[in-house]
Design a protein around this nucleic acid. Structure first.
Lengths: 301, 301
DNA sequence: TCTTTTGATCACATAAAGTGATGAAAATTT
DNA sequence: AAATTTTCATCACTTTATGTGATCAAAAGA
């Protein structure tokens, strides 16, 4: 495949506009000899005469006219590339492919999206909801740019950015709720603890918050959504750990469930962002994360 | 205005296809270092990172994806230029802008166009009818490629190509037609000679065929078409010189006009082609002219 | 720990694009 | 007719861009 030079095409277009070699050369900020040689070179490459030269006039052949027309299309396309890049340099514009886990997405996003849109009006969010390990794979394959998830999660060569802590509450059937300001891991030993099934990192983080290992007895897991799990608690089937975020998102409305804050050390899950270490947009992602922190704390109060 | 290189854009596209520097380099028939440097150079020029490199994977940033997409458009456009030129190399294809004078066009074209189309099916004729000096100007301005006219005509720096001679006949009102095989210039001295007005070169060529100068008395000129002139003769207002081409084209049908061939030296006008001396298509125009000769002589017989 | 894979980098070679000066042909003025 | 002007091509030369193989460093995998 033989390629002309964009410079040559530009020379040709300018020559067509000026109908004069010396003037075209001036317009291109090169010497007349350069432009002349450029046009000759282009004609030689294409193997066809595009321009007829007389000592008095410059004429474009019928083919030359058509080549000029198409060359304009070519340069316009190149120009568009430049414009796209320039637009992108303004931070947080364009499209951000964001992966979010299912125990965050339905509770956090509806509450922060409006303000996020206002803060970054030129940013289009392309949301993907999935289990941590799924969206981590997508991140590492380059199909996503950024993840919003619960940390820690071993996601390969990523940079994690802490946003805020999301405290756990223990959810009881309303009539079984103990009258305490907070509840401790030890107090749960007699309860039937229901958690979400493998895949949801919420299970691991909940256990970690309780300083329990998966092997500790009396733990049942269920392959359902958090909403369904709450319904089970409401029906008296046991207790569970609920992220405050979900409660603030209204997961308890219309249920027969009451909650007590979890006590002890680190009774929360950590919410954060992850991106590939190699990402050139790290700065922008931090700004994005800071904005989420901002919005979140304003919701809390 | 800063221009990337088409090579660089091509490297980028290939890298996107191969997702691997070394393979992309191979596909571009360059060394890995060249392709690597090319991509880096492009990123530096644009001032933005398009590709994320890890030791294991190559990822395109969201911007990178869009740049690749637009770069494909660019290269397709360049490719189209190449195709246009290639198509043009096949002789007598594309568009030919042909200027024809009014004393040829209506008589010759209808009779030769069908066969011309058959001979050059890929050639589109863009016809312009006008006085010799008008279409000559257009030729010299590069607005026309080729002229079909009566020679000689001083048209500036053109190459003329003789096609055939078009004999003159003297047209009388039918009842005044002398009973002769041919008629001589001297025999016309008593007649009222009607010719076309300035602008039509037919006047000059008719006078030349008669070996007369415009000053020779008893010559009237009229600013009309040849058809109208024939009507005047039919009405008994004098005699005129008619090109045989017009008669064969049926100009006399339904009129009261009879003709006698003109005698003497060179009793004809010369039909030919003209193109700019500087035209790169001279060979093609000769082939085109030869075909007209061909068709014309087959009509004669 | 050793090997393999992979993209970046280095020193160097070649090719392309640039320059000012000059030349030749046509058009215009003297 | 001669001189001048206009205009594009060409020349010798410089600078810049693009290319190469060899080598390096980092990460992944054995």
């Amino acid at each position: 495949m033989y390629l002309p030079t964009l410079k040559q095409l530009n020379y040709l277009i300018t020559l067509h506009e000026q109908q004069h070699f010396a003037k075209a050369a001036e317009a291109c900020f090169v010497s007349q000899s350069t432009l002349s040689a450029g046009i000759i070179e282009l004609e030689k490459l294409l193997g066809a005469q595009l321009v007829e030269r007389t000592k008095r006039h410059v004429h474009f052949s019928e083919l030359g006219e058509r080549v000029v027309k198409e060359a304009r299309v070519t340069l316009a396309s190149v120009h568009k590339i430049g414009e796209m890049v320039e637009a992108e340099k303004e931070p947080l514009t364009g499209t951000l492919r964001l992966g979010v886990i299912p125990t965050i997405a339905p509770f956090l996003l509806p509450r922060i999206m409006p303000q996020l849109r206002m803060a970054f009006p030129k940013l289009t969010l392309q949301l993907t909801e999935g289990f941590s390990h799924i969206i981590c794979d997508q991140l590492n394959r380059g199909e996503l740019d950024l993840l919003l998830l619960a940390l820690p999660f071993n996601c390969g060569p990523t940079t994690d950015y802490h946003l805020f802590n999301d405290p756990f509450h223990v959810a009881f059937t309303a009539d079984k709720k103990p009258d305490m300001n907070e509840i401790n891991t030890q107090d749960l030993k007699e309860e039937n603890l229901l958690l979400m099934e493998d895949g949801h990192c919420l299970k691991d983080h909940a256990l970690a918050a309780c300083h329990l290992t998966p092997a500790s007895g009396k733990v049942e897991t269920m392959g359902t959504s958090l909403h369904t799990l709450v319904q089970m608690i409401s029906g008296g089937m046991g207790v569970t750990l609920l992220p405050e975020m979900a409660m603030m998102g209204g997961i308890l409305s219309g249920t027969n469930v009451a909650t007590v804050p979890l006590g002890g050390q680190n009774p929360f899950r950590e919410i954060g962002l992850s991106w590939r270490q190699s990402s050139p947009m790290a700065d922008q992602y931090k700004i994005f994360g800071d904005k989420i922190i901002d919005i979140w704390s304003s919701l809390d109060s």
